[in-house]
Every structure is written in C-alpha cells, then in structure tokens.
Design a protein around this nucleic acid. Structure first.
Lengths: 231, 231
DNA sequence: AGAGTCTTGCTGGAGCTTTTACAGGCCGTA
DNA sequence: TACGGCCTGTAAAAGCTCCAGCAAGACTCT
C-alpha cells in the first residue's frame, strides 16, 4: 500500500492551509461571499473576468474546457479545501476554464480587493495563499503526467492513483475511490474516448488490479498500477 | 497578426513583476545568490529538496522530466523573467522536474528564508510573488492545451504560437521564433516523436504556414495555424 | 579541408486509438 | 408498467503514431 508520500502530505497540507486561511480572514472581519451550488450549476464560465479567490468548502466540483472542437476535457476534479479561479492581482485575467458543481457544493468567494487588504494587514495570509497556489501547480503537474503517455491504459494507470489519493476511502488495505464515475467521466479526465476506457478498465479488472462496484472503483493492486504507469 | 491578447499581456506583466520583485528585494538589503550556468548545466534535479525561488534573468532554460520509461518531455522552456522551482513555504517539497540551461543563463536564487523575511516586511513582495505564481499556472494550462489533442499536427499548431509569443521576433508582419530548435526539441515539447514532427513540419511548410531557416521557424500564417489548433 | 556528429528525410509494418454502429442493461419518470 | 435516456459492452474499418532502419545533408571542431 505505497501511496506516493509527497502527494498525501500535500492533501493534508492543503486542508490545513485552506482552513487557516479562512479562519484568518474571518478573524480580520473581512467579508466573504458563501454560496451553495446544485449539481450542474456553473460557478463561472471560461472567458469571464476573474477577480476573486474561490475556496471549495464541501462537495465536488470540476473544471473543464472544450478541445478539438467538440470534446470536453476535465482539467481538475476538486474536493473540499481546493482553491480555484484566477484572481489576477495585477492587470486583469479571464477564467481559463468552466467551473461546474458535480455534487452539491459550498463555495467561499473572496473578492480580490479583500484578499489584497488581508495580505497587507497580515503576512500570514500571503503565505497561506502562496502555499495554496503552489499546491495548485502540483496538481497541474500531475495532470500533465497523465497526459504525456499516449496509451489510454498508461494514462488511467496514472490517473487512478491520483483520484484514490484525493477521493480515496481506505478499508482492509485497499482504497476505494468514493465517487460514482462513468467511463465517460474518466475519458474526459485522460482526454480519451469512452470506448477505450471501457476496454482498459475491463482489462484491469480481469487482471485483478481493480474492482468496480456501482461506478465506484477499488484499487486492489496499487503497486502493479504504479508499475503500469511507468516510472 | 492576431496574437492572443491575453498571452502577450502576460509576457509583459511577468517581466514587470519579476524586475520589480528583484528591485524590492535588493532595496531591502536581502542577499540573493546570482550564478551563471553554461549550456547543459543543471540548476537542480528532479527529487532534490527545493527551498528557494529561482528567477531566470537571462538566457534560455528548460524544465524537463522523463516519462514512459526512456522518453523525455520538456515541460517549460523559460526565458528572461520566468520564475521556477518549488519553494515549499509550508512543509518541504521536492523539485518535480530537472532544470537545465540551454544557452548561457544568469539565475538569481532567493532562499526561502529570505523570501519569507521579505514578505513579512513588505506586502508588495507578496503580491509580486503571487502574481508570478499565477502566471506560472497559466503556462501550465497552455501546456495542457498542447497535450489534449492527440495528433502531432494539432499539438504543434498549439505550440508554435506559444513559442512565437515568448521567443518571437516580429518583422514585416510575420513572427520568427528566435531559437534554434531541432525537430527532436519540438517533439519533446509536444510529447511526440522526431519523425512525426518532421512530417508535420514539412506539411506546414508545403502549405505555406511556416518557413524554416537554420532551425528558426517563421510563422507566415498565424490565423491558419490557430484554426488548425482547434478553438 | 576532412572526419565525425548531429540533423533531417523517408519507409513499411505493427500497434493503438478513434470512429461508427449496434444491442442489452439500468434507472427515473410519466 | 411502459417509455426514454444514459451507461456499458463489442466489433470492424480507418487513421495516426510509434518503431526500426537507413541514407543524405548540415554543422562543428580539429
């Protein structure tokens, strides 16, 4: 059961930093806009002007973007304490993806001007934000790692451990990804097709690497998966 | 000559922010380690502990990482005023790629403790760093955009404008990428093979989209390239 | 100028993925 | 209960990439 040690540290670190960031902001008496989104609701759209820091407090949310004309790629699947949105300290920036709630989500939005005030008043806020931005970079690097190999099998072998890390539920020495994922969902995450994912997933099941139950995937042989993903 | 307006703003913004960051740090009397690297020298290696902020002052530098066993992907090609390195404000982090000088490079290294001191003393430093981190995120998003489509042609059609944006030399209404790039170099950037790049580049040349002279690529028809890259 | 190295160009076959098409299963709703 | 919609499982054809190998051209260093 060798979970990449660095990644699991990152998950904890992120929760810790996000929580204390919100706490600090609250203690400073700075207003935040909390809102709940229902499945399918859009938090923002690609191209909108962004000028706020978003923190996902609970629920699952996805960032996606169209590519190759009619396809859709999921760039990040977020869970509690992930941050998202471009806040554009200098100049203005547009959102580079769509943000859509997958399950019911609670989102805290901190407008740019308040973030700036908080950073000026309290350097610790700056450290939290810088750390969270770096963790977001790491997530992008993980995505790139998924996309570099061309075979769907290898891409999935890279993706599944990442999902297990983030949405994993550990029991009896195996990890179950606690999400109902369709093959289509997985295909969007590795920029492949539903058919290829179906094929690969069945192969993995036949080789006893994974188990699928009601859309929930259990990783039965982490070591073999990591081996597949290529060192 | 429609260069993506947001990306060109980003290039200027980055130079501005990096320069003023270094100026601020200097004014505060904080020590930085400046060093020159020769082509091929490694600034750091994947897996090393990172605890500094690196600023590339001049030259060209690449971040790369092995994948699929024996291949090598170039994650970012950096030029003046790009920042790199994981500095791990909280906890410790390892470098997630190799950093290697392509041409002679001048690099300013600001150790983590000094960055922390500067941020505490002067909130403006924090804003600069946060802005630079966000720009790095944008660069990763661009890389992902390159990797999402599977055909080498589309990937290159995405990559070339990005390179032109960053290394472009504008003359007579056309842009020349001011770098000697071999097909192998390009292949490493789009995670493809040298043969495929050769083929696609020749096609593009035949269609009068680009021109190649001594390893330097000129984009003759920006609009058609962007069209190829898929909206 | 010459030798050696790197780069480019081209090929054919093997391997995956994509595309298209179709059938059966599951589920929620009318 | 019946219907429609979404999800899974297969299959065949077409396309592109990858691999291995080879030859000619360009460049560099001595």
């Amino acid at each position: 059961m060798d979970v990449d040690p660095s990644l699991s540290e990152y998950t904890e670190l992120q929760e810790q930093e996000s929580r204390s960031l919100l706490r600090l902001i609250e203690e400073m008496g700075i207003a935040t806009a909390d809102r709940t989104y229902r499945p399918g609701d859009a938090v923002y759209r690609q191209g909108e002007y962004g000028d706020a820091l978003y923190v996902l407090v609970s629920g699952v949310l996805k960032l996606f973007r169209p590519y190759s004309g009619s396809k859709e790629a999921t760039l990040r699947l977020l869970t509690s304490w992930d941050i998202f949105g471009h806040l554009a300290f200098a100049g203005e920036a547009r959102q580079r993806a769509y943000a859509e709630a997958v399950t019911e989500c609670r989102v805290t939005k901190i407008p740019k001007v308040f973030v700036e005030r908080a950073v000026r008043q309290e350097p610790r806020v700056a450290f939290k934000i810088m750390t969270l931005l770096e963790l977001r970079l790491v997530q992008y690097e993980e995505l790139v790692k998924c996309l570099l190999p061309r075979e769907t099998e290898v891409r999935l072998a890279n993706l599944l451990p990442i999902l297990a890390q983030k949405f994993g539920d550990r029991q009896d020495g195996v990890v179950t990804i606690d999400l109902r994922l369709t093959h289509q969902d997985l295909a969007a995450m590795v920029a492949s097709t539903r058919e290829s994912v179906t094929k690969v997933l069945n192969e993995m099941r036949n080789r006893d690497l994974i188990e699928v139950d009601a859309g929930r995937i259990t990783l039965k042989d982490w070591r073999a998966l990591v081996k597949l993903s290529g060192p």
